[in-house]
């Protein structure tokens, strides 16, 4: 009798154990409560730092380069005796406070490259929202420094988007009409065409006979590459951001249009 009882018990335990094991073999996935990341103006520094830490280790993908190997400086550990990023960020770029420097390195990473590293960091606005970038800044500041990111920074950066180099928001239309681009992208402010526009830069009339298509393209993307004779005092005036403001098709449309203006 006891033999039967034990056998039945063994069968029951075996079956239950088997199902439990099957459920354990599958990689475990827990469904978290979605966080209401509403970092309004009343947000506390603690909340920002906590959110930033998650971004740093998660959605931001920062740890892929920072903190591993030699691709990028270590941020949350000591770097060449200068302390963690929060301690050294205020002195990196002369005249730039910690907060501004960190925000710049996240949004315009090529603006300042730490010596000894390659310019490989992507513009984080492609992956993160403004709230998230500010949260990441707050987290980095907290690593050895004082957190001074506030709700106002987040609120301020939202309208500042339009002025930022990466064209975001409705400023970017899809038109391929070069004349429309002429006024829309602000070329009209400096270059004259058909009697319209300012006289800061060379006129666009007959530009095709002076420059080749390749030269025009290079000039738009990298304005510092050369300066037209007679405009030396205006050298460096042309914004270097048109390469980002135009889509490839728009750029080509504009270049072809200008090269044909003989």
């Amino acid at each position: 009798m006891w033999k039967t009882n034990l056998k039945v018990l063994a069968i029951a335990l075996l079956v239950v154990g088997f199902y439990t094991t099957v459920a354990h073999i599958i990689p475990q996935l827990q469904s978290e409560v979605p966080e209401a990341l509403a970092l309004g103006s009343g947000v506390t520094p603690e909340a920002l730092v906590a959110a930033g830490e998650k971004i740093y280790n998660g959605a931001g993908g920062c740890t892929a380069c920072h903190g591993l190997g030699t691709r990028a400086p270590n941020l949350i550990t000591d770097y060449k005796g200068q302390g963690a990023v929060g301690a050294r960020c205020g002195t990196r770029k002369p005249g730039m406070a910690c907060k501004a420097y960190l925000y710049e390195s996240l949004t315009q990473p090529q603006a300042y490259i730490v010596q000894g590293f390659d310019p490989i960091m992507p513009d984080m606005r492609k992956q993160l929202s403004d709230d998230q970038i500010w949260a990441a800044v707050a987290f980095l500041e907290s690593q050895g420094g004082e957190v001074d990111v506030t709700g106002e920074d987040i609120a301020k950066s939202a309208p500042a988007k339009g002025a930022a180099p990466a064209p975001t928001g409705p400023a970017m239309t899809a038109t391929l009409d070069p004349v429309a681009l002429y006024s829309e992208k602000g070329c009209i402010g400096c270059h004259q065409m058909d009697g319209k526009g300012g006289a800061v830069g060379p006129s666009w009339d007959h530009i095709g006979s002076r420059r080749s298509a390749a030269s025009i393209r290079r000039k738009i993307i990298d304005p510092k590459s050369d300066t037209t004779k007679g405009f030396e005092k205006f050298a460096g005036m042309m914004p270097a951001t048109f390469g980002q403001m135009l889509t490839a098709a728009q750029l080509e449309a504009l270049v072809t249009f200008l090269a044909n203006k003989k």
Partner: peptide
């Protein structure tokens, strides 16, 4: 809304443990 610390939905392994406990 569930605002308790247990608001998350557990992974299958944990659930399987609880189910096995109940079954036993």
């Amino acid at each position: 809304r569930d605002t308790s610390p247990d608001a998350f939905t557990p992974a299958l392994g944990y659930a399987a443990n609880m189910i096995s406990l109940c079954v036993l």
